[in-house]
Simulated assay, not measured.
Amino acid sequence: MNRSKTNAPSPSELKTVGFTPFLYLSDQPLFHVCRDVPVADALAQASDLLFLAKSLTIDAAYVQDSDRHAWAAHYLTTMSKALIDDVVKVLTRRSVQTRKEAAPSKNT
């Protein structure tokens, strides 16, 4: 069944798939990205988390005994990476679907 390009979701309608785990304990993920978060919101949140992580790493570079800064930055970047990886899964899946739709059908 071919979907026309008009039926493909617009970028503003794309949402996270929720398959991406992060922060493991004994090979078990403690957390996952939530599904159905709008992609734009997920990327905005990742940007905010990365901004905070950057600020903490700058503080850690200048402050002695700054382990708490380093660990906080580590967790923030881990969460950010999971959000971005989940968005990439959505965009990659959409790209594959679009290529399949654009390919000529064997039945025509």
Rank of each mutant, 00 (worst) to 15 (best):
N2P: 13
N2Q: 11
N7A: 13
P9W: 10
S10C: 05
S10T: 13
S12F: 04
S12L: 09
E13S: 13
E13R: 12
L14V: 00
L14P: 01
L14K: 03
L14C: 05
T16P: 02
T16D: 04
T16Q: 04
T20K: 14
F22K: 07
L25R: 11
S26L: 11
D27P: 00
Q28I: 10
L30Y: 00
H32A: 02
V33R: 05
V33E: 05
V33Y: 07
C34E: 15
R35S: 15
R35C: 08
R35L: 06
P38D: 01
P38V: 03
P38N: 04
P38C: 04
V39H: 04
D41N: 14
D41T: 05
A42R: 01
A44Q: 14
Q45C: 13
Q45R: 15
S47P: 00
D48K: 10
L50R: 09
K54A: 13
K54P: 00
L56P: 01
T57C: 06
T57E: 14
I58K: 09
D59N: 05
A60Q: 04
A61D: 08
A61P: 00
Y62A: 12
Y62R: 09
V63F: 08
Q64R: 14
Q64Y: 11
D67V: 01
R68V: 08
H69A: 12
A70P: 00
A70E: 14
H74D: 11
H74N: 12
Y75Q: 12
T77Q: 10
M79R: 15
K81D: 10
A82N: 02
A82S: 03
L83G: 00
I84F: 03
D86V: 08
V87W: 02
V87L: 07
V88A: 11
V90N: 02
L91I: 11
T92C: 06
R93D: 11
V96R: 05
Q97R: 07
T98K: 10
R99V: 15
E101V: 01
